[in-house]
């Protein structure tokens, strides 16, 4: 299963990277969303898959799966939600102010240096 997961994670990262390198701001945001999915699965896979039962004490005799990656991912999910929504609003406001979502046109001016 870990090998299958490795391939899935690889594909998720690949298409996330491709999306983030494109010019449209929406595609970049979707890319970051994919990237966080990939990262979550990566953390989970690193901890080992299905090596025990659900980490609830008393529900079964154990051994339990590693609870630490799960705690990390839970934090990461919520943070990535915050980041994504901030990105979304930045994109939305950028479009309202400047009328474009093309990253090439959003480049900083020379005089701003």
């Amino acid at each position: 299963m870990e090998i299958v997961m490795a391939v899935v994670i690889g594909i998720l990262f690949m298409s996330a990277t491709y999306l983030m390198l494109s010019k449209s701001i929406l595609r970049i945001i979707i890319g970051t969303g994919l990237l966080s999915h990939g990262a979550h699965l990566l953390i989970l896979t690193m901890g080992g898959l299905k090596r025990g039962s659900v980490p609830l004490l008393g529900e079964s005799a154990g051994p339990y799966v590693d609870p630490l990656p799960q705690a990390l991912i839970l934090t990461a999910i919520v943070i990535s939600f915050g980041v994504t929504s901030l990105f979304l609003v930045v994109a939305y406001r950028t479009y309202q102010e400047l009328g474009t979502d093309n990253m090439d046109k959003l480049r900083g001016k020379e005089s701003n240096e």
Binding site: A6, G10, F13, S15, T17, G38
Partner: peptide, 13 residues
């Protein structure tokens, strides 16, 4: 992006 994907998959493995 293929490079990134391959590297990440390798790390997972």
């Amino acid at each position: 992006s293929i490079g990134v994907g391959v590297i990440v998959a390798l790390i997972a493995l």
